[in-house]
Computed example of a mutant assay.
Amino acid sequence: MAGIGSYLKKHTESLVKDVGIEPACELTGKSKATLGRYYSDNPEHADRFMPVDAVAQLEEAASYPHVTAALAELRGITMSYDDRRPNSKGSGGVNSDVIALSQRFAMLMAEYNQSIEDGVISVNEAKRLLKETVALQQVLIDMKLHLEEEAP
Score class of each variant (00 low, 15 high):
G119P: 04
A2Y: 11
T68C: 01
M109L: 08
V120H: 12
E132A: 08
S40D: 09
K144I: 03
I116W: 00
G92N: 11
L130H: 10
S63H: 12
L71H: 13
C25I: 00
L136D: 03
P23A: 09
R75T: 08
S6Y: 12
G90K: 04
G20S: 09
S115R: 03
A69E: 15
S122G: 08
D142M: 09
P23Q: 09
L108Q: 06
S6C: 05
S31P: 07
D53V: 10
K30W: 00
L136G: 06
V134I: 11
I141F: 05
F49Q: 10
K144V: 02
E117Q: 13
G93T: 04
V67R: 09
L58V: 02
M79H: 08
T133L: 11
T78I: 12
M109S: 09
S88L: 10
E132F: 04
T133C: 10
E13F: 00
A61C: 05
L108C: 02
M143S: 10
A151K: 15
P65W: 04
I116L: 02
S14N: 13
M1R: 13
M107V: 03
A151C: 09
E148C: 02
G5E: 11
E125T: 07
E13L: 05
G36L: 01
M109K: 11
E150P: 00
A46D: 15
S6A: 14
S80Y: 12
D53C: 05
V94D: 07
H66P: 07
S6K: 15
Q137F: 07
D47A: 15
A106N: 11
S80H: 12
K131D: 14
L71P: 02
M79Y: 11
I121N: 05
D18T: 01
E59P: 07
R85N: 14
A33C: 03
R128K: 14
A62T: 03
G90L: 03
V19M: 00
E117H: 10
V94G: 04
G90F: 03
E111A: 13
A135Q: 15
I21C: 00
E149V: 04
N113Q: 14
Q137A: 12
V19H: 00
V139T: 15
N95S: 14
S31W: 03
Q103I: 08
D18H: 01
M79A: 14
V19T: 03
G29D: 06
L74V: 04
D82I: 10
A72Q: 12
V134G: 01
A70G: 06
M50I: 08
R84P: 01
G5T: 06
A69L: 09
T68A: 09
P51G: 02
P86D: 04
E26V: 09
A126V: 00
G93K: 06
M107H: 12
Y81I: 15
L145K: 12
K127G: 01
D142W: 02
G119T: 01
V120K: 12
V55A: 10
S6P: 00
Y81K: 05
S6F: 08
R104S: 15
L129S: 05
E73H: 13
H66D: 07
K30C: 09
A61L: 03
N42K: 15
I121Q: 05
A72D: 14
G3E: 15
A69R: 14
